[in-house]
């Protein structure tokens, strides 16, 4: 008997008129906000943990590097002081040597040779001192550059970590967010799930298990529905009481609700027949 028990798909379009416009998965996707902070509390907390750990490590390394640079700077300073002292001693020795030559030697050639040698020695000492000072300035400049580089790298690293933390946690929070939403949908009795995870999302196994669960529940519900349909047909064929039929149809309407992804019908078969 064509009992008026419609196929689920045939029954589409009979959902109450008040339910309004035809839905669209695409529209829903387009409407959804592209936000990387789906769960700010969770994401920012773990990002902050990551940043704090890295900042502590960086601060430790920074202290070590600063100490090494400080020692290099101190050594350079000491070297400059030693060089200045050596320069002063060299100059004093030169002066003494010149005076000694002036006092003890009448040979102008020897005096000139001596003067040239002392002048060369003075020039060499002055050059050495200038070199040491220049190296010290280089070291101080390098130290300052290193400090600036460390500070800039630290800031850049923290910013990068914040960005990466948000993106990485989003890979986990995204699927969780989606699953929470789908679980809420299942909690309303809607078992038909069309959504899937994005490529590269984590927790694929969990999502797959969830989908398997909905498939099982749908299959069980569909089997129950078929049994009910068959019983309903037999009841209609054998002229069962109308209130019994009405109860079975109402039950069927409830069961159908969960099986259709959109535009479910809760209209009992006899009503749907009359509307079709």
């Amino acid at each position: 008997m064509a009992s008026g028990i419609p196929d689920l798909k045939v029954n589409q379009g009979l959902w109450p008129a008040r339910l309004g416009s035809v839905p669209s998965v695409l529209m829903a996707h387009a409407r959804s906000k592209k936000s990387y902070l789906l769960d700010p509390r969770f994401q920012l907390k773990w990002t902050a943990y990551l940043v704090v750990v890295v900042v502590i490590v960086m601060a430790g390394l920074g202290v070590v590097i600063a100490r090494v640079a400080g020692r290099a700077s101190d050594t350079a300073h000491l070297a400059v002081m030693q060089a200045e002292k050596a320069f002063e001693e060299s100059r004093t020795n030169s002066i003494l040597a010149r005076r000694s030559v002036q006092l003890n030697s009448d040979d102008p050639t020897l005096a000139k040779v001596m003067e040239d040698s002392l002048a060369e020695l003075d020039a060499q000492s002055a050059k050495n001192l200038a070199d040491v000072r220049s190296r010290q300035e280089d070291i101080v400049r390098d130290r300052r550059n290193l400090q600036q580089l460390l500070a800039a790298t630290g800031v850049a690293l923290v910013l990068l970590l914040v960005l990466m933390g948000v993106v990485i946690t989003h890979r986990i929070v995204g699927p969780v967010h989606k699953m929470k939403k789908l679980l809420r949908r299942v909690s309303t009795g809607r078992l038909a799930i069309e959504e899937r995870l994005r490529r590269g999302d984590e927790l694929e196994d969990l999502f797959d298990t969830f989908l398997q669960m909905t498939y099982s529940l749908r299959a069980m519900q569909a089997a129950r529905l078929k049994t009910l349909d068959a019983t309903l047909r037999r009841a209609e064929a054998t002229g069962a009481a109308e209130d019994v039929l009405a109860g079975m149809r109402a039950l069927r309407a409830q069961m159908v609700l969960g099986l259709e992804p959109r535009r479910s019908s809760v209209i009992p078969p006899s009503m749907s027949e009359s509307r079709v």
């Binding site: 959902w15 109450p16 008040r18 339910l19 309004g20 416009s21 839905p23 529209m27 829903a28 809420r184 949908r185 309303t188 009795g189 809607r190 038909a192 069309e194 609700l257 969960g258 992804p261 959109r262 535009r263 479910s264």
Partner: peptide, 18 residues
């Protein structure tokens, strides 16, 4: 309000059981 509510449920694939 009821129309909007039911329409929103339907559009988002939820049953109106809430």
């Amino acid at each position: 309000a009821i129309d909007e509510l039911c329409s929103a449920f339907e559009k988002n694939g939820y049953n109106p059981t809430p």
